[in-house]
Nucleic acid binder design. Structure first.
Length: 108
DNA sequence: GGATTGACGTGTC
DNA sequence: AGACACGCCAATC
């Protein structure tokens, strides 16, 4: 359970620098999962109960859309956190997504 | 052990 | 530009 796929996802998620975001697919690829981007999102479901504080709000889909914002306690929290980090969010979508996008492979 | 699901991704209509 | 369909893979029921 602990050393399952989730752990790896959380690890990458925690590696995301502040003021930066990443996509599920990018994380999946960093794990070697390739196209199993869904597994990353699926793993994030446990993020709330996993390691203290997984910056799940920094994880968005490839479109820069806050797809998982509804999973937060208050769905608006995700956008709030992102804006707090200096990321501009509009209509549940990240502005300048390319600018704030962080590739996990860049840290590896 | 088979069937279902899921915070996705990419392509096509 | 928005909507629909297919594919992928692991965990849960």
């Amino acid at each position: 359970m602990e050393d399952s796929f989730y752990e790896q996802v959380f690890e990458i998620a925690r590696l995301v620098p502040k003021g930066r975001v990443t996509s599920y697919g990018a994380i999946a690829k960093a794990l070697g999962a390739g196209g199993s981007a869904r597994m990353v999102g699926y793993a994030m479901s446990n993020a709330g109960i996993a390691h203290p504080r997984v910056p799940a709000h920094r994880i968005v889909n490839s479109s820069g859309l806050l797809t998982g914002k509804f999973h937060f306690s208050p769905p608006e929290l995700m956008q709030q956190l992102l804006e707090q980090e200096g990321i501009r969010v509009e209509n549940d979508k990240i502005k300048d997504f390319k600018r704030v996008f962080w590739n996990p492979l860049d840290d590896l």
